[in-house]
C-alpha cells in the first residue's frame, strides 16, 4: 500500500445500526440519556420514531475504519470530530476518509486525513480529521498540507 495525498481510505460499513447495541452501550457507559433506548422520550422530544445512536458509537465506526486501514490500533495518533446529525436504529452507515497530506515527524511518516460518517440515503452524521502513523514502506512521499 502506497499512501499519498488523495489516497482514499477503505470504507467501513455497518449494514444496520442496532437498537440492542445502543442499550448495551447505555449500560456499559452508564449513559442515562433516554434517547438511546426509550422511544416515548424520543417522540416527546420531537426526535422521530427511532432511538438515537450514541455519538461515541458513531465515532467508533470511524475509528474502526482507521484500525482496519492502519492494521494496528497503535498507529492511530489523533481523531477529532464534529457531530452533525443523528444516526438512528436501522440506519445503514459508511465511514470514509481521504489522506490530505503525508509528512515526517522525525521518527515516522504521518498521514493527516479527513474522515466522515454518512447515513445511506440520509445526511453526514459526523466529520473531522485523523492522524495516522504509516509504516516506512507506505509513504509515497511527503506532500504539503492543504
Amino acid at each position: 500500500m502506497r499512501v499519498s495525498a488523495g489516497t482514499e481510505l477503505p470504507v467501513f460499513e455497518v449494514d444496520e445500526v442496532r437498537a440492542a447495541a445502543m442499550k448495551t452501550m447505555a449500560v456499559l457507559l452508564r449513559d442515562p440519556n433516554p434517547i438511546h433506548f426509550d422511544l416515548d422520550v424520543v417522540a416527546a422530544l420531537g426526535m422521530g420514531d427511532r432511538v438515537i445512536n450514541q455519538g461515541p458509537t458513531n465515532m467508533a465506526y470511524v475509528v474502526n475504519m482507521l484500525v482496519a486501514w492502519a492494521g494496528d490500533p497503535a498507529r492511530i495518533r489523533a481523531l477529532k470530530v464534529r457531530f452533525l446529525d443523528n444516526v438512528r436504529a436501522g440506519d445503514r452507515v459508511f465511514a470514509g476518509g481521504i489522506v490530505t497530506s503525508v509528512a515526517g515527524d522525525g521518527r515516522h511518516q504521518i498521514a493527516e486525513c479527513d474522515v466522515w460518517l454518512d447515513v445511506v440515503g440520509g445526511t453526514r452524521a459526523l466529520a473531522g480529521s485523523a492522524t495516522v502513523a504509516l509504516k516506512g514502506s507506505e509513504a509515497a512521499g511527503e506532500t504539503p498540507a492543504k
Binding site: 447495541a21 448495551t24 456499559l28 467508533a60 474502526n64 484500525v67
Partner: peptide
C-alpha cells in the same frame, strides 16, 4: 463493547 460497536 467491541461487539456493540462492530469492531474489527
Amino acid at each position: 463493547t467491541t461487539d456493540a460497536i462492530d469492531s474489527p
